[in-house]
Design a protein around this nucleic acid. Sequence first.
DNA 1: CTGTTAGCGCATTCAT
DNA 2: ATGAATGCGCTAACAG
Lengths: 376, 376
Amino acid sequence: MRVSVGEQGKVAKKKAIGKTRKPEREEVPAGDNTKHTMRDVARLAGVSISTVSAVINGTPKVSPVRTQRVYEAMQSLDYQPDQIARSLKVGRSRTIGVVVPDITNAFYPEVIRGIEEAAHKSGYGVLLCDSNEDPAREKEHLSTLFSRRVDGVILACSDTSAAYDVLVARRFPLVFVDRIPKGVRQNAVSTNNIKAARMATRHLIDLGHKRIAVLAGDLNFSTHAERLEGFKRAMHQAGLDIPEAYLRSGNLQLEDGYEAGLELLKLKHPPTAVFASNNKLLVGLLRAVSEMHVPCPGKVSVLGFDDHVWNQHFNPRLTSVAQPTYDIGRCAFEMLLARMEDQPLPGKQWSSIMLLDAQLKIRESTAPPASDGRKS
Amino acid sequence: MRVSVGEQGKVAKKKAIGKTRKPEREEVPAGDNTKHTMRDVARLAGVSISTVSAVINGTPKVSPVRTQRVYEAMQSLDYQPDQIARSLKVGRSRTIGVVVPDITNAFYPEVIRGIEEAAHKSGYGVLLCDSNEDPAREKEHLSTLFSRRVDGVILACSDTSAAYDVLVARRFPLVFVDRIPKGVRQNAVSTNNIKAARMATRHLIDLGHKRIAVLAGDLNFSTHAERLEGFKRAMHQAGLDIPEAYLRSGNLQLEDGYEAGLELLKLKHPPTAVFASNNKLLVGLLRAVSEMHVPCPGKVSVLGFDDHVWNQHFNPRLTSVAQPTYDIGRCAFEMLLARMEDQPLPGKQWSSIMLLDAQLKIRESTAPPASDGRKS
DNA sequence: CTGTTAGCGCATTCAT
DNA sequence: ATGAATGCGCTAACAG
């Protein structure tokens, strides 16, 4: 179809030279499974190639007649503009990269969902990368993303050591989600972890608890450090102190939560409530509680961070802090979009870290402490 | 900086067009925040542009000296090849599209993980799309993926009506995962649902159960239809029959599982075991069981499809069918890769549907029926 | 081996 | 309002 130049006469001048097509072309059936270009459309519509471009982009005004003809041609050829070529030309790919440490952690799919929906609404594609909690892999991903010429990146980093902005911030717009590297003071969106943890802890305190332990996670991550900070503030404000044995930090895997839980429960003065700083820790803790047959919330109240479907169907139903995961994703994309399109930043907030409020879902795993915990 | 070519005002000769290069650009300023092209590298290395291309692609042999020089130049300029340009030239983007119905459903992140890892290992990027269980959205995604010139697509469809292959199979290589549309007999990978369901059901039967109910889900989806089929076969083989009231199908949301569970448990002859065909149904069922204070597994055994972290920490720990999610993703990519690169198919298997075996994780939610359920 | 050159498909001045 | 021409950055013949 496309090789039959010369028919229309007008275009068949020197143009034939540019088209050094060899007649090796096997016969093509009806132009069905063929990929068509703007030229094909132009020819069929009897207009120039730039007119086609014009109607596609709506740029200059094109007469209704020709517009119509072009549309019909596109239709009949089932023409789809080649975004690759377009990207090369305009220098923007309308694609963003999203790199997360572990898509298997239920927290991330939800923020990805927020990103994805907002992105597609704005015509952006999402290139997904999983760093598997491995800084080296993350770096590699960042590099290939750059090579693929993404317009921007949303990153939930897997590395606690900084140097992020030095590394890539100037290569393309970058916004951090969830975990925010030290030193970063803008282009980031996360949960207001301090506030959330404080609220959660206060809930425990209001219930009458005085001996509250915390499974704090890895304090090298901003998220966990902040949650502990919020916890401490609430405790301090209530005049309660935190025995060293009640403060467990370090790693953040399920097993860590399990072991820490076991040790906590075996203390001569066990806590009457435990706050777990993320979902994995929480599950581990729950397992310890269940294994030691400690009634919950009867003997120990349990409160966790991250709220998933399971939490409300667990037995007992779990009180937990629900992060605004979807909104984190959405906001992150919007922040990135503003940078990518150089929009005037609508307010100071955009040039600083954006903190979203979490919600405390009070269910059955938290209750007033047993009598021995209530005295004083 | 690189646009300072306009010395000649007008292009003198057509012949000179290709030679618009001017050696005016000698000093390489801190080549830091600038994007460099192969030309910059070539100039710095003192070689031709195609030599640079050659060392990058390793295509023809380049003398070690020049190779070295090129590498140094690339290094010092921090040069990253522009994949967009490359894609346009070679006609392949080294990108695949992945569209899932709901990334929030824990099943998909795991298969995505399998896809992602295999893809990156082969140098492919993954464009993620979430159709939100909406056929229209899915279609739209397929269309933009085509426009973005992905080399292939892995699709977990959200539409039960067929016409998939007619629609897109010839536009680009396509592999189905999980849900397989009716009529598709190749380019698909999924769990061997019939076998898995049969095995699970047999486990219940072996335990001594005779009154087994099933929450079958939406039978328009191949996955659910097959699971029911497997269930039926096992029952039939054991000479057990399935009262109509024990077979619940239709929708597959959590609430459906909850309501069905309630009704089942309220029957004059309630089942002694229930098989839930997916994770949401299972959670709903569990909730009903817990709410009615029916001891599990004491009074009713529960077995589910899909195995997530939570399952093994639930109380009681859940017996469930673990699908080979990661492998499904990995295999799907490999199947797609074979098609994209036109590799000779290693065996008939590739040209048919690939079914992976699931694993039955026996835990605590299944046990022999109570005495009143054991008689005949 | 190495350099020159012609486009890939599209957006965009700049002439009409 | 419309069309011819130019090049985005790169690869692949084809020359030398």
